[in-house]
Each structure stands twice: as C-alpha cells, then as structure tokens.
Computed example of a mutant assay.
Amino acid sequence: MKVTESTSLYDNLEQMDVTSILQNINREDKKVALAVEKVIPNINGLIQQIVPRMEKGGRLIYIGAGTSGRLGVLDASECPPTYGVPFDMVLGIIAGGDKAIRKAVENAEDNPEQAWNDILEYGFNENDTVIGIAASGTTPYVIGGVKTAREKGLLTGSITCNPDSPLSKEVEHPIEAVVGPEFITGSTRMKSGTAQKLILNMISTTVMIKLGKVKGNKMVDMQLSNAKLVQRGTKMIMEATGLEEETAYKLLLSEGSVRKATEYFYKNLS
C-alpha cells in the first residue's frame, strides 16, 4: 500500500472535541518539516542543475494534478510579483487547465500524453526544467509529462510523498518527502500538500536568490503592484541610501524598482 493511502493514526474523528482535532492535526503537521529536512540533499542536487540552465534562458515548469497542480500554479504565479521576472519564466501547469484550479476536471489526470501537449503551448528549449508534482507518485498526467520531457533532453525532477514511486523512476532528480499517514486517511492536501509547498518554496526561492533577484535579504526587483509594496520599496531605498521618505518614494516611482532606484542614487545622487 502507498504511504499516502495508509490508514490514519487516529480514529473516530467525529467523536473528538474541537481542541483534540486541532492538537492532533498540529501533532501530525510537526512531522512535515522533519521529512523535508531529510530530502534537502536531493533538493540541493536539483537546484544546482536548474540555476545554470536558467542563466542560459531556461524556464522552470511545474506539472501536476489536483492539489499538487494547484500548488505548482501558486508557486509559479508568485514569482513575477515577488522577483520581477517574466510571467513565463516559472510556469505552473495543471491537469485540466486553469479551470481546474477552482473546480476538479473529471479524468484530467489520467491522460499520460496531455501534460506534454500542455507544455508545448508555451514552447520549450533544451535548458528548461520540468518538475512533476504528485503526492502519490502515480499520476499518469505527471508521469507521462516528465517522461517525454526527459526524452526531449530537458532536466527533470519530481516531488512525491511515497518512496520508490513510478514518478521518481522517470526523472533524474526525485524528491520523496515521506510524511506518513494523513490525519484523515488519504487526504493528501494536508501533510503531503504542506511538504510539497515547503519544497516548492525552497526551490523557487533559492533559484531566484542564485539568479541575483535578491540583494542582502530584500526583494529588490519586486513589482510595485499595490500601495503596500510601494511603501515597502520606499523603506528599502531609505535604508539603502539614507534618503528621506518623500525623496525615496519619488525616486522609486520614477525608476520603477528598488534595484533601479538604488543604482540611480549611487550613480547620480550620492
């Protein structure tokens, strides 16, 4: 039996009081970070291969179905506003298309050829990386996608929560965060989903740092898409340059990013 489908360590959940339910979920959640810690060497190996490829113009492409697909879409969609990168530098592709983000699409994950067809809508180049995400490691959509990607010469990785899964066997860099039985049997949106989110955070954040999208500990290329981010950017410039708030604010708006504003200051105003 798959670990992700194994029986919960808890039973008669409907008879538990609310406090007990919350404490037991939390008890299980504490195991997730420890499971992720064990696979850091695997994550490291994958990232070491991704970065030089992206420096040559490659992209990072996540493919998944259901919760796994949604997590990939989430991570990808947050990269442009956070790091100021093009929308297609990190792509999240979900079985069933964008409508599947909100509503399950029947049988979408069962077609082993569809993921590659979905990737082709964005084109591909030899420096791209495809990471398949599937808690079970058995999703045909994901397995078929990484298999074809690897055949085409792309770098491939996977994020699963079962040991020795079929998906892991199809990629060069498998990551298997085995978190154990879910609090509700088979509900992999819980611990498995949390593990996948943690790993995706680690991958995209580390890649962006190594690509120079972070300076010190600041998101110097973030998009100024709302008042909060403009205020944050203004504070960053004040800290970096010693400018007063109003001057830093005007400089940020005129240059369009913290990085450009800071560079302009040191070139022309310091």
Rank of each mutant, 00 (worst) to 15 (best):
V3C: 10
S8P: 11
L13V: 07
L13W: 07
E14A: 12
Q15F: 10
D17Y: 00
S20L: 03
N26L: 09
K31V: 00
V36Y: 11
E37Y: 12
V39Q: 09
P41S: 04
N44M: 12
L46Q: 04
R53C: 06
L60I: 03
I63N: 09
A65F: 07
S68Q: 10
R70H: 14
D75F: 04
A76F: 08
S77Q: 15
F87T: 12
F87C: 00
I93V: 08
A95E: 13
A95G: 14
D98Q: 15
R102V: 13
A104W: 08
N107F: 11
A108P: 12
P112K: 08
A115Q: 06
N117Q: 14
D118V: 01
G123N: 07
E126A: 12
D128S: 06
T129A: 06
G132T: 01
G132N: 03
A134K: 06
A135D: 08
S136N: 04
I143A: 09
K147I: 01
L154N: 06
G157L: 00
S158L: 06
T160G: 05
L167N: 08
E170C: 10
E172Y: 13
H173T: 10
P174S: 10
E176F: 07
E176T: 12
V178F: 07
F183S: 00
T185G: 03
G186S: 02
R189P: 01
K191G: 08
G193R: 02
Q196N: 11
K197S: 07
L198P: 05
L200M: 11
S204G: 02
S204P: 01
K210M: 11
K213E: 03
K213Y: 05
N217Q: 07
D221K: 07
D221P: 00
A227G: 00
K228F: 06
G242T: 11
L243K: 14
A248F: 13
L252M: 02
L253W: 13
K260C: 00
Y264I: 01
